[in-house]
Design a protein around this nucleic acid. Structure first.
Lengths: 241, 241
DNA sequence: ACCTGAACACCGTTCAAGT
DNA sequence: ACCTGAACACCGTTCAAGT
């Protein structure tokens, strides 16, 4: 332990070491006690040294989110779309259970990090590959965003609007093209929403409708189970406590 | 405006005025800029004056949550259970949209406030009155907790475990009886979980199973829509932008 | 040119000194 | 007995002074 600290002090600080130390500290002591000063102390450096690798605390938190999201397993190919999506989401859940501060931090970000966008993009791709229409995939992503994906509803909307706020039109177009290159499925979805026959400029999508879509889907499911006299007796084998 | 501030200064401070001012300040300037010092300034008092009405900032946040949850409409009787639940949840959503900081604060509480417990209790009561079995209601509440209820999955579990941590057995029993009096439906549910044939002491419930229940319910719903060639063309009338 | 100690403007909360 | 100014132990971040 003391040896590790010694060794760590000798290795020159870099962004990756800063982020991993921050994740470890948050895992161990909780996100509320993660401070720039405490983190610096843990790394055996003066607080100011951190500011060479992250612009500020917000960027540190962004970086920590990317580390965590990077731990989610890549999609496993082969089976039907439901199994593939299911496996991926269960992997994400395991990751978020390992880093219990992560959901809260992800939801607190004002705009999603690249790693989060990549995760969402590949998730959309899995639905599309499974044969779901663009239209259905759009609403499905919103419904999943509730909490099963690990973060909140509004995140998905913001990936568009926040990035393009207070920037001139030309820069926006460039950003959009860059985005389409990196995240084709997100771009495809955004495009459809924009070309919607009833849409006015920048309408994007109807939050209220998305919310009710998820709600009604669940409620109808509950009612169906109710009518069938559903019971949890057919629960999978439980490991003993 | 200046008159209001003058008048407010004359009225003696009480807990209710402190909480309402805190809610208004969070609504206006965001939760991150709500500080004890700033709130005191807004009320025209010295920071220390607040500590006569709330023990600390955590208790202030608890009180703010109760104010917000108190704004949710009471259940409207009469119709089928789905309409009743639907209306209530849509009311809760409207409230949380008015106070955009609230979800985050509710999820950050270490144990649920009385108002939140009351809200959950009456929600359970609505499902039970609709004819859902205790068993089904249990899983339904977990599935709803995802995000549609406005706060996270784990909250519901903690209402039991957190309250009874590091307290002797006798005090626990008293607390349980008090709880059963105030929140009969929660108590009923907790009881069933405890008497589950396979349960060991304090097993409460299988988080993993609850998560997958919600997940599979949604996924099966998506697949059904997919097979039906679902489209959002039958969307309700949209108000123009 | 690079690094960093001291300082700034905050924060929640305590406590002793004042009335 | 009550109230509160000053103080404490923090925080993120700036910046000028040092090498």
């Amino acid at each position: 332990m003391a040896q590790q600290v010694e060794a760590a002090r000798r290795v020159p600080l870099n962004r990756d070491r800063v982020l991993r130390a921050a994740v470890a500290l948050a895992d161990d002591t909780g996100i509320e006690s993660l401070s720039m000063r405490r983190l610096a102390q843990e790394l055996g450096v003066v607080p100011m040294a951190l500011y060479k690798h992250v612009a500020n605390k917000e960027q540190l938190l962004d970086g920590m989110v990317d580390v965590v999201v990077g731990e989610i397993d890549p999609p496993a190919g082969g089976s039907d779309w439901k199994s593939v999506v299911r496996q991926r989401i269960l992997s994400a859940r395991r990751v978020l259970l390992r880093h219990r501060w992560a959901s809260q931090v992800i939801e607190s970000r004002t705009s999603p990090t690249p790693a989060v966008l990549e995760y969402l993009d590949s998730m959309i791709g899995m639905f599309r590959a499974g044969g779901l229409s663009l239209d259905l995939t759009h609403h499905v992503m919103h419904a999943m965003g509730s909490r099963l994906l690990g973060f909140s509803q509004e995140l998905f909307d913001d990936s568009q609007s926040n990035a393009s706020r207070s920037v001139d039109a030309e820069a926006q177009a460039v950003a959009r093209r860059q985005m389409a290159g990196k995240y084709p499925h997100i771009a495809e979805l955004a495009m459809t929403a924009a070309h919607d026959e009833e849409s006015t400029v920048g309408r994007s999508c109807d939050d209220q409708f998305e919310f009710e879509f998820a709600l009604d889907l669940l409620l109808d499911g509950f009612e169906r189970l109710r009518q069938q006299g559903w019971t949890s007796a057919n629960r999978p084998t439980k490991r003993p406590a």
